Every structure is written in C-alpha cells, then in structure tokens.
Simulated assay, not measured.
Amino acid sequence: MLDEEKLESNTVADFEPPKSRFSPRSFLGQLSDEVDTSVGALALLACSFATGLTDGTLYNAYSTFVSMQTGNTIFVALGTSGQNSKPYGWARSLCSIGCFTVGCLAFSRFHKLVGGGRLRRTLFSSFLLQTVCVIIAAAIIQAGVIDGSVPSRRDPADVDFLELIPIALLSFQAAGQIVNSRGLGVGEVPTVVITSLLCDLVSDERILDPLKKNVKRNRRAVAFVLTLLGAICGGWISKATAAVQPSLWFVAAIKAIITLSWLFIRKVK
C-alpha cells in the first residue's frame, strides 16, 4: 500500500509543469545588479562615435557643438566682439553650454537618487532618456518645424530661435554620457571631451605597453579614433543627404541599442 502511494506521488511530481525561470520579481532584481565595467566600457566607446556624429552634423547646420563645450565657449567669447560668423551664433553656443550644465546636474542627481551609476537600472534609465531626447530633436527637424537642410536654404540674416530646441535637447542628453562614464568608473572614456583624453593618452608612462597590459590606454585611443570617425561620417552623411535628421536618426538608433544592451550586459561576479 505504501509503495503504491509513493509511486503515485512520484508520478504526479513527474508531470508537474516546470516553473518559469522568468518572473517580474526576478527581472526587477536583475535591474539592481551592478554591470561589468569591462563590458560596459564598450557602450561608452559607441557613445564616442555618436558624439562625433552629432557634433559633425550639428556644426555643419547650426555652427555650434552639443558636446564639445570648449568650442562653444570660444564662440560665445567671439560673439561679444561681433566676430561670430552667424547672427546670434553666440546664443546657440550659450544655449548648448547652459543645457549641458543642467544635464550634468540632472543626471548626477538622478544617479544618486536611484542608487548609483553602476546599477543596471541607472544605466538603462539614463540612456533611455538620452534616446528620447535625440528622437524628439530628430522628429522636430524631420517635421519641418525648423530648417534642417545642409547648407541652410534660409537667408543668413534670418534668425530662427526655434533652432535652440534641438540644440538644447542634444546638449542635455550629451551630459548624460559623461556622467555615465564617471558613474561606471570608466573616466578614461569621457565620450564628450577630446582635449583631456588626448592629454591622458600621450602622457601615459605605460603608453608603449602591450595591448593586454594597458586597458585604459587602449580605450582612450579607440575613443579618439571613434570620435574622429563619427565626425567624418556626420559630415559625409549631411553632405550626401543635404539634411541634418538622417544623422540624428542614426544617433538615436545607436542610443536605443545601447539602452537595450544594459539589460543583457553581464553583472559583476
């Protein structure tokens, strides 16, 4: 009798449906994981290309940068003496500087609010917001709200202050990249600064070490090359299409892929 009951219980157990490995609770738990910095650095290198692509395109159209604030500072300074090449060009540069600064403040406070810059949920949320900003900027230009032709068909003396909208959005999201690089602990890839990157690269006492023995040097060199390539691509795309928005949609796609990648990048062991 006992043997029959035991056999029956084993048979029932054998036919119980397997429990799903995925559950909302386990997914939320994964969002609290710290991502592997060595893999996360690859996403930041992709951001370096996106930075070059964005700035190479926006400079052609609006004579301003959204990431490289050193150039914008010079443009603002030249504007005070009336030497900027475009009417109110200094206003575009000043807008970029201001929104970049606000973005650094907002993203850094957000990181502290959600628990730290290395958490999966922090990186995912940050890049999701960056992607949305780029999409909105590209959509505004695509819809014809402002002129996105390269070169512009508008009279140079005709100032359209609506151009400040995409500049503000793109500058704000660019700040997220450098805050992410600091939070992730990959400060050697700031993604938006070339001068300090080159300084750190060439002043590295171990610059001639083999590839596998100087990871930071490798990342700096690759980040510089990718930024340069991005700017070249931005210039060629805007020249070939005579428009700004194709490059911006390309940047949005890169950001979207990076955003999703944070859900799959392995955690720290």
Score class of each variant (00 low, 15 high):
residue 90 W to N: 02
residue 91 A to D: 00
residue 92 R to A: 10
residue 93 S to A: 12
residue 94 L to E: 00
residue 95 C to Y: 01
residue 96 S to V: 06
residue 98 G to C: 11
residue 98 G to M: 08
residue 102 V to A: 15
residue 102 V to H: 02
residue 102 V to E: 01
residue 103 G to M: 05
residue 104 C to G: 14
residue 106 A to T: 09
residue 107 F to G: 02
residue 107 F to D: 09
residue 108 S to F: 07
residue 109 R to F: 15
residue 116 G to L: 08
residue 116 G to I: 04
residue 118 R to H: 08
residue 119 L to Y: 06
residue 120 R to F: 07
residue 120 R to H: 07
residue 121 R to A: 13
residue 121 R to D: 09
residue 124 F to C: 08
residue 124 F to E: 09
residue 125 S to T: 15
residue 127 F to Y: 14
residue 132 V to G: 06
residue 134 V to L: 03
residue 135 I to M: 10
residue 136 I to H: 01
residue 140 I to M: 10
residue 141 I to W: 00
residue 142 Q to P: 10
residue 142 Q to G: 11
residue 144 G to T: 08
residue 145 V to E: 01
residue 148 G to A: 03
residue 148 G to C: 11
residue 148 G to D: 06
residue 149 S to D: 12
residue 150 V to T: 05
residue 152 S to F: 08
residue 153 R to A: 14
residue 155 D to Y: 03
residue 155 D to Q: 03
residue 155 D to P: 01
residue 158 D to L: 13
residue 164 L to W: 08
residue 164 L to T: 02
residue 165 I to E: 01
residue 167 I to L: 02
residue 168 A to S: 15
residue 169 L to Y: 03
residue 170 L to Q: 09
residue 170 L to H: 07
residue 170 L to R: 00
residue 173 Q to E: 06
residue 175 A to V: 03
residue 175 A to Q: 00
residue 175 A to K: 01
residue 177 Q to K: 12
residue 179 V to T: 10
residue 180 N to Q: 15
residue 181 S to N: 00
residue 191 T to V: 15
residue 192 V to Y: 07
residue 193 V to I: 13
residue 194 I to K: 02
residue 196 S to C: 12
residue 196 S to P: 09
residue 198 L to V: 12
residue 198 L to N: 05
residue 200 D to P: 04
residue 201 L to C: 06
residue 201 L to T: 11
residue 201 L to F: 15
residue 202 V to H: 10
residue 203 S to H: 10
residue 205 E to W: 12
residue 206 R to N: 15
residue 208 L to Y: 11
residue 211 L to A: 14
residue 212 K to S: 14
residue 215 V to A: 14
